[in-house]
Design a protein around this nucleic acid. Structure first.
Length: 866
RNA sequence: GGGGACGUGGCGGAACGGUAGACGCGCCGGACUUAAAAUCCGUUGGAGCAAUCCGUGUGGGUUCGAGUCCCACCGUCCCUACCA
């Protein structure tokens, strides 16, 4: 018997798989049902981390399982390869982003391959391949023609030192994350995608995604933020200011509280405010003060409400005898609704805070149930609950919902406004003043305006001779690249130097995988066959941005006739992170796990430094990160324990959707399992043995093996890998306990050896998705046909998988008092008779009267007695 | 402020409304060893000699039966946010 040695075994089988090209995707419509499993593709940072191991191991379990089930499986891999880190490397170390990126890809490809994942590598691509982003430019231009792409002036976060636009996430406490410079708001002309055109479709489509986590669907729904309300125009009392002759338009979701209005508020960026600012330096100063406030959470939380009374007044839309003052208020956002509101302080907390500060009227119009209209008052808290409308003329006595409908109807009847649906979602700004991204394929011509690059000139490729010694966009300062001729008039013109947000790159890659050689952006026949992705797997951190963008682009591409599906991902699974304890020395510096020695005494643990012996503080369990030094490198683990043990551990320790805590002891448990598993295979004697089901031990083993098939199958289907692995452990324990095989197998009966042979044959196939290399070696050891990777998923014999005898617990008044053995499906009265005859039960029923006996077939007996 | 998830042994976690704690880790005991590591075997929710009793954050409720369903509270975590 030889000890299992993953170091030799694992590479051997990876080579065998590659040589036989077993993971090559089948042709479309090859007769088998299709299954498309995809993990979110990685950013090529240079090395894989444990999070990747977990993500790709999960996808691999599904892919291998589905292949064994007879599906035509598409399981591709690619690289989300554009983005800032490549440019940062260029600035910091003088390497070219392209070289840096492709070097990283090469390194990570080797690491991923060493994981033994069943990927069809022939379909690999990177989003920075001109071949890929050229196709992206092609569909981008088609969306431009469709009117889904437009330019507008928008305010952006501008880093004055790096001379670039920053995403909101890159602004930390008002400063650029790299330069540390105070970020300015600048108005720039930017490219946008009309995602808001699809707001309704994106919300309504969520209902069809029944294999998505509810959490993610809810997050998207909230993000899109559909609200129904009323949009109407206030007319000015007296002469309207310049440009406002039509009135001042506001949006509200509470038209029922119109009679509680005490003032009208406009955002500091509102055109009316800006106009007033031109004439009045006091207004100008006020607006400037409002801009100073930061956007961090704490600042918004504590920000004082600020207001400026413009002196203008407007007429109440339902009673012109009432007039309301117009204030400029810092808490009103220009980019939601109309940038202007009517305020009802009694029933909105922000309005109330403002009204109290500036001593404006607070008039309640919704009476909570049980309150007296004469005495009800609003103090420091606005009342936002249900109730009856009062103090509101014709709305009096209505409930809130009825009053909303009535108020909308009245306003619509007077022509002052209309019921309206407003979204929180904004159009998607996709311009980036960056080099390492997909160039926006348009040309600016002085006489023709914006002209799309003709399709036969695509891709618009990035120039490679660029410099990073100065801040700003290298494309802008490149001596020749942007100078070109207008495709329309032939005159001198300039290329667009903005590149696309990298979220565009990842919004359609799954469709390209269907046919990576297609001349069109998406190969229609292949995409129609493969899409949607049946199972998508990735981190929950992409719940909103990536998954929403991909849904939007899919719908846009569908309307453009490029794909046939509306939703890209039929099934979504969001897996948890890989965490690890973080350690600190007495000076408060982070210490790497490999330098820490843990001592256990009873239930308490203490730690010391491996080299110095100095005390170490065991900190919290946190996401692995370089800054906290609590990172365990996958390659070190592969080296020490083998790939299968690492895969097995990340699959087994926690439910897949939850975080898994990496521990050395844990992976050692998986390592022990692989050895014990191998030993069982290795101890099975050669030869054909006949089944003999009269042998109790043999039959028990066979039954356990056939039941196991169902357990493991269900656990994979239901993404409960940890439970499936637990069942495999349990079965291995049963196998070891069976009377057999003490080295040479001599003590086992032929019946048991036959049962063992059958069990091992099943077991090898069931563990194959989890520990594929070991399974292959085990399969070979027991003389399995071909490679286990090509073996069909085992089928349970229903007769063997079913229990013919059941052990039913007997409860008295819900407390367990004994058990009864009964044939499966035994009639209730028979089970009752046996239960009541049980001596222990009889003892417990002493002095009690049996009122009722509840028998749940094959499960439980409950005797109700008192 | 709004929304959501989760509270089970020393730890990670199992449990279609039906035997709570599967499986793993750790601890403890034993075998092997000159010894240790590795490996193997066994015990392990708490109390009790035992019968038995108590146990799934707290308090109520529904049910023959609740970790699971409902209500309230406490705690932890995540998302989102002057969104009118």
């Amino acid at each position: 018997m030889a000890r299992y040695n993953p170091k030799d075994t694992e590479p051997k089988w990876r080579e065998a798989w590659a040589k036989a090209d077993v993971f090559k995707t089948g042709e479309i419509n090859d007769g088998r049902p299709k299954y498309y499993v995809l993990e979110m593709f990685p950013y090529p940072s240079g090395r894989i981390h444990m999070g990747h191991v977990r993500n790709y191991a999960m996808g691999d379990v599904v892919a291998r399982y589905k292949r064994a089930q007879g599906f035509n499986v598409l399981h591709p891999m690619g690289w989300d390869a554009f983005g800032m880190p490549a440019e940062n490397a260029a600035m910091e170390r003088g390497v070219h982003p392209k070289g840096w990126t492709y070097d990283n890809i090469a390194a990570m490809r080797e690491q991923l391959k060493s994981l033994g994942i069943s990927v069809d590598w022939s379909r690999e691509f990177a989003t920075c391949d001109p071949e890929y982003y050229g196709k992206q430019q092609a569909w981008f231009l088609r969306l431009l023609k469709r009117g889904l792409v437009y330019r507008k002036e928008a305010s952006v976060n501008w880093d004055p030192v790096d001379m670039t636009v920053l995403a909101n996430e890159q602004v930390i406490d008002g400063k650029g994350w790299r330069s540390g410079a105070t970020v300015e708001k600048r108005k720039l002309t930017q490219w946008f995608l009309r995602i808001t055109d699809y707001a309704d479709a994106l919300i309504d489509g969520l209902k069809t995604l029944d294999r998505w986590p509810d959490k993610v669907r809810l997050m998207q729904e909230n993000w899109i933020g559909r609200s129904k309300g009323l949009r109407f125009k206030f007319q000015f009392d007296g002469e309207a200011p310049d440009g406002m002759a039509e009135g001042l338009e506001v949006y509200t979701t509470r038209p029922d509280t119109l009679f509680g209005a005490s003032f009208v508020g406009i955002a500091p960026e509102h055109p009316l405010a800006e106009r007033l600012g031109l004439e009045n330096s006091e207004v100008q100063r006020f607006i400037a003060d409002c801009r100073k406030g930061g956007t961090s959470e704490a600042e918004i939380e504590s920000a004082e409400k600020l207001g400026y009374d413009t002196g203008l007044r407007v007429k109440h839309p339902l009673d012109p005898s009432i007039t309301l003052p117009v204030w400029i208020a810092n808490f009103i956002l220009m980019d939601y609704g109309t940038g202007a509101i009517f305020a009802c302080p009694a029933h909105d907390q922000r309005d109330l805070d403002f009204a109290r500060k500036y001593d404006l009227p607070v008039k309640p119009v919704v009476l909570p149930n049980g309150e007296d209209p004469e005495t009800f008052q609003v103090g420091k808290e606005a009342y936002v609950g249900p109730g009856k409308i009062f103090n509101s003329h014709f709305l009096d006595g209505m409930d809130v919902e009825t009053a909303k409908a009535e108020a909308v109807a009245r306003i619509e009847a007077t022509g002052q406004g209309q019921g309206a649906t407003v979204y929180r979602l904004r159009d998607w700004g996709v311009s980036r003043q960056r080099y390492w991204g997909c160039p926006i394929p348009v040309i600016h011509c002085a006489s023709c305006g914006v002209v799309p690059v003709p399709e036969d000139q695509l891709p618009v490729a990035l120039p490679e001779d660029v410099t990073f010694d100065k801040p700003g966009n290298p494309l802008l300062r490149h001596p020749t690249w942007r100078h070109t001729t207008c495709p329309s008039c032939g005159g001198a013109a300039e290329r667009e130097t903005d590149t696309l947000d990298t979220f565009i790159d990842s919004s359609w890659y799954f469709a390209r995988f269907a046919d990576t050689k297609a001349a069109e952006p998406v190969g229609k026949a292949a995409a129609d066959y493969w899409l949607p992705v049946d199972q998508y797997i990735g981190g929950v951190e992409h719940a909103i941005l990536h998954l929403l963008y991909a849904r939007f682009i899919t719908r846009a591409l569908k309307d453009e006739g490029l794909v046939s599906v509306e939703e890209p991902f039929a099934g979504l699974f969001t897996q948890g992170m890989v965490t690890h304890e973080a350690y600190k020395n007495e000076a408060g510096e982070w210490v790497e796990p490999s330098d820490v020695v843990i001592k256990v005494e009873g239930n308490s643990r203490s730690a010391t430094h491996a080299k110095t012996g100095a005390p170490i503080v065991i900190g919290d369990i946190e996401k692995m990160s370089k800054s906290k030094k609590n990172v365990v490198a996958p390659e070190d683990i592969f080296e020490a324990y083998g790939v299968d043990s690492a895969r097995l551990f990340v699959m087994s320790d926690s439910p897949p959707e939850r975080d898994v805590q990496w521990t050395n002891a844990g992976v050692e448990g998986s390592w022990r399992f692989t050895h014990r598993l191998w030993n069982e295979f290795d101890s099975q004697p050669a030869g054909d043995f006949a089944h003999d089901d009269s042998d109790e031990a043999a039959l028990a083993l066979r039954k356990a093996a056939h039941k196991l098939i169902g357990f493991v199958t269900d656990s994979i289907e239901g993404f409960r890998f940890n439970s499936g692995v637990a069942r495999l452990y349990e079965f291995l324990n049963a196998l070891k306990a069976a009377p057999a095989a003490n080295g040479d197998g001599t003590s086992a009966s032929n019946a048991v050896l036959a049962a063992r042979a059958e069990a091992l044959n099943i077991l090898a196939r069931l563990v194959a998705p989890f520990t594929p290399h070991l399974a292959e070696e085990a399969w070979a050891r027991i003389g399995g046909e071909g490679m286990v990777v090509n073996a069909p998923w085992p089928k349970a014999d229903p007769a063997l998988a079913a229990d013919d005898e059941r052990v039913l617990p007997i409860q008295i008044n819900g407390k367990r008092r004994g058990e009864v053995k009964a044939k499966a499906g035994a009639p209730d009265d028979e089970v009752t008779k046996i239960a009541l005859a049980d001596p222990n039960i009889m003892a417990h029923l002493e002095g009690l009267t049996v009122r009722k006996v509840i028998v749940v077939k094959d499960r439980i007996v409950n005797i109700v007695a008192n």
